[in-house]
Design a protein around this nucleic acid. Structure first.
Lengths: 147, 147
DNA sequence: ATCTTTGCAAACTTTTTGCACCAAT
DNA sequence: ATTGGTGCAAAAAGTTTGCAAAGAT
């Protein structure tokens, strides 16, 4: 669990304190390893430490995000999902079934470069989701159009 | 105002009714012509017809969106912005100053194609925002790093 | 001892919903 | 006459905040 230790060093170095709550949230993030909502994290965390409060989860995520350890993406209907920072993938989100899939970042490299070169806009990788329709839902749609 | 008439036809054809509220919201969308929040629209609309309610704006936007006349994008901090459907541009949103810029869709064509071919995922153009840092904020950051 | 973090409850923001009334077709 | 839309008020859903007590350094 290198990531966990690195994050803890990071927190400490920035003058933060290492508390149970923070260790739990971090642990939960490592465990989950995918896009989880604050509430998902709360559930994981509370299965061990039921006293931990949702607002603490939010505040911890905030702190970790400021350190660059965590990122969050808004998936469209309000909820945000959080995960350990990692530039290796992006999210594609189905607007029919809300499923989230990860795709390699390389698909986005050209776009990133273009926006940089032509608009001096520095994309924050991993902080946006592409909305569309996933293969399963597309199939269902095709079938229903046959009727 | 072709767009407006087309939208009205569209509404009528789908069994919808043409009311003051709907005409106003549509008019406001045409007038604004950029990304506006539901509240922005409410303000525009209420300057003429103060009795129109926010929930009506939402319901109208909903109806128009189902017809494909309107689209909305979530910009990250909760608020959604709405605009007339138009595949010609995408949004890039600054995570520092929240400014929104439009960039031509062609930049996204390759990405769209890749996601289609490799993941059978059909991107819903115009329904996602790219988050990052705009040129102005980048400049400010550069300067502050010189200190 | 100091300064940060926590738990809780309450506030806030944005969007949705139930319902009785009203209006467009 | 029907069916769909409106205004209002209240609820939801997700997140943030103020505060006093507890905890990490």
């Amino acid at each position: 669990m290198k990531r966990m230790e690195a994050a803890i060093q990071n927190l400490r170095a920035s003058g933060g304190r290492i508390t149970n709550a923070r260790r739990s949230v971090l642990q939960a993030l490592v465990t989950a390893r995918t896009h989880v909502t604050a509430e998902d994290l709360l559930n994981i965390v509370q299965s061990e430490s039921p006293e931990i409060h949702l607002s603490t989860v939010y505040r911890t995520l905030d702190a970790l995000e400021k350190l660059g350890v965590v990122d969050h993406v808004h998936l469209g209907h309000g909820r945000a999902v959080y995960h350990l920072s990692d530039n290796a993938h992006q999210h594609i989100v189905c607007d029919k079934c809300s499923s989230v899939e990860e795709v390699p970042s390389e698909l986005f490299l050209q776009l990133e470069k273009d926006l940089k070169d032509k608009y001096r806009f520095k994309v924050r990788m991993n902080h946006f989701a592409v909305i569309g329709t996933c293969s399963q839902c597309l199939e269902k749609l095709d079938k229903s159009e046959l009727n």
